[in-house]
Lab assay of single mutants.
Amino acid sequence: MIVFVRFNSSHGFPVEVDSDTSIFQLKEVVAKRQGVPADQLRVIFAGKELRNDWTVQNCDLDQQSIVHIVQRPWRKGQEMNATGGDDPRNAAGGCEREPQSLTRVDLSSSVLPGDSVGLAVILHTDSRKDSPPAGSPAGRSIYNSFYVYCKGPCQRVQPGKLRVQCSTCRQATLTLTQGPSCWDDVLIPNRMSGECQSPHCPGTSAEFFFKCGAHPTSDKETSVALHLIATNSRNITCITCTDVRSPVLVFQCNSRHVICLDCFHLYCVTRLNDRQFVHDPQLGYSLPCVAGCPNSLIKELHHFRILGEEQYNRYQQYGAEECVLQMGGVLCPRPGCGAGLLPEPDQRKVTCEGGNGLGCGFAFCRECKEAYHEGECSAVFEASGTTTQAYRVDERAAEQARWEAASKETIKKTTKPCPRCHVPVEKNGGCMHMKCPQPQCRLEWCWNCGCEWNRVCMGDHWFDV
C-alpha cells in the first residue's frame, strides 16, 4: 500500500509500505531520502505521535493516508518512550493509558441525555464484534464512529474520518494533550489543546475536521460531520418502519427517538411537499423529531443533505422563500418566477423588478396576487391545505425507538455506581478489583462488596467470576 509523507509540512511524497511495516522502518526510509538522522524524526498522525514499535496496521493507516513527519531533536526523557523501550505506560498493571487514536474515538455516547454525564468515556458498548469485510486488514473493525456528507465523488452519507490540525499553522502536526470525549470537544473551536510539532510553531489549540472515509482524499478535501447519525450498535428499532437498520439518525429530543435514513428521507420529502418545515429565527429551515417532541429541531442543517441534490435544492429554495415571508415580504405569483420581494408595508401595487435578471417585471396586487387592478379585489380565496398535519407515529413504536432507553438498560445490566462519587462504572470481565475512572475520584473498590478495596476482598473473592 501507499502512504503519503509530508516532511516538515512540505509537499508530500509517496512511500510504499506493508501492513506489518513498523513506524521506525518508515522513519528509516524517510531519513534516507531526506539525509537526516532517523532518531530525530517524529511521525504524527490523527493528533498522535506514533511509536517506533507500532506497525502501519496498528495505527489504522489506510491506503493513501497522509502522515506528517517532522525533524525535531529529542528532548530529555522522550527518546526512550518513542523507541518502544522502557515506557512506564506499558508496564503490566499500570494505570496510565495511551491517548486514544482519533481513528478509534467514539462519540456516540454523547447523544445520551444530559443526566448521563461521564458515560462518553466510561461506558463502552460490546456491539462492535462484526466481522471485518472481505479485503480489510485482519482485526480491523467495521464499526463506524462518525458519518459525514461527502460532496465529492460519493454525493451521499458516508463513514467519516476525524482529523485534527494546529489552529495556528493549519498543519496536521499537532499532538493532542488528551483525546475528545464528546461532540462539544470536536465542534467547539479551541476547546481542546495540544502541542504543535512543526518547527518554530508555538500553536497549542486544536482544530478538528472530518474527511470522507470511503475514498482517498487530499489535504484540502473536508466534509461536514453529521453528528446525529450513528451506527445502530444498540439495535434500536426505527420509529417509523420498526426495522432494525444501521446507520440511524438520533433526534435530540428527551427520548432520543431513532429513525433509519430511508424513513428520514421520506419524512423530509413529505414535509417538504406540504411546505411544513419549521422556520426558526436562529436555526433556519428545519424539522423536529418525527414524533413531534418539543425542543427537538435539527440544529445542523447539513443533515438535510440526505435528501439528495434535487430535493436539497428545493429545500434551500423553500427556506429562502419562507425567510422572505417571515420578513413581511411577498413572492411573485407569476408561474416560473417566484422571486422574493420586500415592498413597503402599505404598498398595494407590487412590481417584480426586472433588474439584474432576477425579476420578471410582472405587476400584481398584494392582496389577491392577481395582475394589478384598481378598486376592490374580486375574490380572495383562503389558501387550502395549509394546516399542519401531524406525522403519524405509532405510540408503541415510539416507545421502542428510544436510544436513551437502550442506554439505561445497558447501564443497569453492566454497571454499578462507584461507592464514593456514584458514577456508573462498567465491568466487562476481569477481577473484582475496580478503579473509578473519574479523575477527581480514582477510588479503588470491590465490585462484589461495593466497598473500598481491602485485604478481605483480596483474599476471599479477588478473582471470582
Rank of each mutant, 00 (worst) to 15 (best):
R156T: 15
G179V: 04
V380L: 09
K151Q: 13
F381W: 07
V269R: 03
R191G: 05
S198Y: 08
E321R: 07
A120L: 04
M434H: 05
S255L: 09
R348T: 06
E376P: 10
S246T: 09
P73D: 11
D460P: 02
G35K: 07
S218L: 09
N313P: 07
F304I: 02
I411Q: 13
E321L: 07
V148S: 00
V17L: 09
S255K: 13
T125Q: 13
D464Q: 15
S116Q: 09
C95V: 14
V5L: 04
M80P: 13
Q63W: 07
P437W: 06
C150Y: 00
T168C: 07
W453C: 01
T173F: 06
E28M: 06
S286M: 01
S384R: 10
G94Q: 10
V186I: 14
Q197R: 08
R104H: 13
I44Y: 05
L307G: 04
K349L: 09
A134F: 10
R163C: 15
K369A: 06
L107H: 14
P99F: 10
G430N: 15
A398V: 12
A390T: 13
I23K: 00
N58P: 01
T173A: 11
L162H: 01
F264S: 01
L102R: 10
I23S: 01
H433G: 04
P335T: 09
A134I: 11
G308Q: 05
K129T: 09
V278Y: 09
C451D: 15
T217W: 08
E321Q: 15
N190G: 14
R314N: 03
S223L: 06
A339L: 12
G328T: 03
H227E: 15
P99S: 14
I298Y: 01
K76Y: 13
E49N: 01
P133R: 11
A405K: 14
M434D: 01
C421S: 01
T103E: 14
G93Q: 12
A172E: 15
G354C: 07
C154T: 01
H302I: 08
C268V: 09
C365N: 03
E207L: 06
P99M: 14
I298D: 01
T125E: 14
D346I: 10
V30N: 00
H124Q: 12
T387E: 12
G179T: 05
W74D: 11
R72N: 15
G135C: 11
Y391E: 06
V290F: 05
A230G: 06
